[in-house]
Design a protein around this nucleic acid. Structure first.
Length: 466
RNA sequence: GGCGCGGUAGCCAAGUGGUAAGGCAGAGGUCUGCAAAACCUUUAUUCGCGGGUUCGAUUCCCGCCCGCGCCUCCA
């Protein structure tokens, strides 16, 4: 079956076909760099990484743009409080974000664009909206007039007809004609950092950066736009209003939104102290691959209940996958080709692909891989797996790993040098030969304490870091 | 209140109008000097609750209960 995605716009699962046959133009809302990313943010970014990888697996070329929001209320407030420039303040968090991405093995989008580097583009867009009379000014700020955009609410499926025009929600700060109206350009307040432009002294509103930067690089109609569910309203709704008012064309064809994650069945909140960063989890000894696996293994449209039990079980699951992969690489299988090996591999791959094609159903895709591993281990134990079966089995695992990317352990700082491990293993083999099991067990236990696990196999002793 | 998502074994989780994938954890076993790894057996007569449609519903419809999200700048 064809690749399908749930489109927030239609509220239905739709077959995916990009505008141009083999290239996908995609925009994802990146981080606001006012703080370190938390595990919830990383869930969304991990989903987007899986999406990227699956599109490429399916043969599409990608042009993926991700923005960095580096000017915004909290950034301005915090930077001013610390006596720093915006750039000085945001650089720290932007850098940290890229480090997190690397640790979680999130591929880098083709383009990463910053709001502050597109101020003039945004000003130009606001001016064009003004020319088309979609805007009005109030107290030096420029607003988008929702009443001029009848489709407003089509993404969030909200009926705004009940909201009274003239209601003033944000009374203490700005005057808006309509509660739904949103700011395109914010007038400078006191001595805030600001840009001197034809719109006055100030800074861009939040929504305009995504409309402007996405269309600048990807054209007026994007194939995919993704983000967290909380962005559906108002952010993405407002992006649609701005973009479609500007171009008269459909802005985005497929809107994909990742559900939030809960921590130990509770929502993340500062007051609960359950907002974790990648760094904090790694300090507690969890591998980034396990975190990646946990975040990727629950289908993106389902709330993910992040628990430490779940994280531990993710780590164990990865062990199982890696053990199988190691077995393929190291075991000395009999010559020849076993019965049904290629068929098993082909079936597993087919089920894996079907799962992923079905709106990135990673749980179903993983099930296919695990089922295959059990069947194949079983065949190996029975002696029915031969040298000639290795290639198709490795192909399954490689394809799986091209999306999940958890098979190969990352670099581990420190630890015992390989040579020392090998020497101890040799000593243990000699001890075993002379039936000095006490010494053999002592060596093995000593290595376990240092994170090295030994396995005695037919081919001899192999070891792995845990 | 409006809109949306969800409630499947101890935990995570897939799924279909025809009788419950997969992972983790637990129990027993095989293998092993002992382990590790692997394999086998076992763990939901049952899918929030109550009705309805149907030969048959976890899957469709209605009602209810519970959890969560959005409803102006939070992924």
């Amino acid at each position: 079956m064809a690749l399908r995605f749930y489109n927030t716009l239609s509220q239905q699962v739709e077959e995916f076909h990009p505008l141009e046959s083999n290239i996908v133009r995609m925009y994802t809302c990146g981080p606001t760099v006012y703080n370190y990313a938390h595990i919830g943010n990383l869930r969304t970014f991990t989903f987007e990484d899986v999406l990227r990888r699956w599109l490429r697996y399916r043969g599409y070329r990608l042009d993926h743009v991700m923005n960095i929001t580096d000017v915004e209320d909290k950034i301005i407030r915090n930077a001013m409080a610390q006596g720093k420039s915006l750039q000085e303040y945001t650089a720290v968090y932007e850098e940290a974000f890229f480090e997190d991405m690397a640790k979680l093995r999130l591929e880098r989008p083709e383009r990463i664009v910053r709001a502050t580097e597109h101020i003039s583009d945004m000003v130009a867009a606001v001016e064009r909206l003004s020319e088309k009379s979609y805007t009005y000014q109030s107290d030096g700020s420029t607003y988008f007039r929702i009443a001029k955009f009848p489709d407003y609410g089509k993404l969030s499926h909200t009926d705004f007809s009940g909201i009274r025009a003239g209601a003033r929600v944000d009374v203490d700060e700005y005057d808006k004609a309509d509660a739904r109206d949103f700011v395109l350009w914010k007038a400078r307040k006191e001595n805030e950092p600001a840009w001197e432009t034809s719109l006055g002294s100030g800074r861009p509103g939040w929504h305009i950066e995504c409309s402007v930067m996405s269309m600048k690089y990807l054209g007026e109609t994007l194939d995919i736009h993704a983000g967290g569910v909380d962005l559906i309203f108002p952010h993405h709704e407002n992006e649609i209003a701005q973009s479609e008012s500007l171009t008269g064309k459909q802005f985005v064809r497929y809107w994909l939104h990742a559900e939030h994650l809960l921590v130990e069945s509770q929502k993340m909140a500062k007051s609960l102290g359950n907002i974790y960063t990648l760094g904090e989890l790694m300090e507690q000894g969890y591998q980034p691959e396990a975190i990646r696996y946990l975040l990727a293994s629950v289908p993106y449209r389902k709330k993910l209940n992040f628990t430490f039990d779940g994280l531990k079980s993710a780590a164990t699951s990865i062990e199982r996958l890696r053990n199988f992969n190691t077995r393929l690489e190291t075991e000395n299988f009999p010559e020849g080709v076993g019965a049904g090996g290629d068929e098993r591999a082909a079936r597993a791959l087919n089920e894996f692909e079907n799962g992923m094609d079905d709106d990135l159903n990673t749980a179903a895709a993983l099930a296919a891989v695990f089922e295959y591993i059990r069947d194949t281990n079983s065949t190996m134990d029975a002696g029915g797996f031969r040298k000639g079966d290795v290639a198709s089995a490795q192909d399954v695992m490689q394809r799986f790993d091209s999306v999940f990317d958890v098979l190969h352990p990352g670099e581990q700082a420190g630890g015992i040098p390989d040579a020392e491990i090998e020497a101890l293993i040799e000593e243990r083999i000699q001890a075993k030969k002379s039936r000095n099991f006490a010494r053999a067990d002592q060596i093995r236990a000593g290595l376990v304490e240092r994170g090295i696990v030994l396995e005695d196999t037919k081919e001899g002793t192999r070891w792995k870091r845990k």
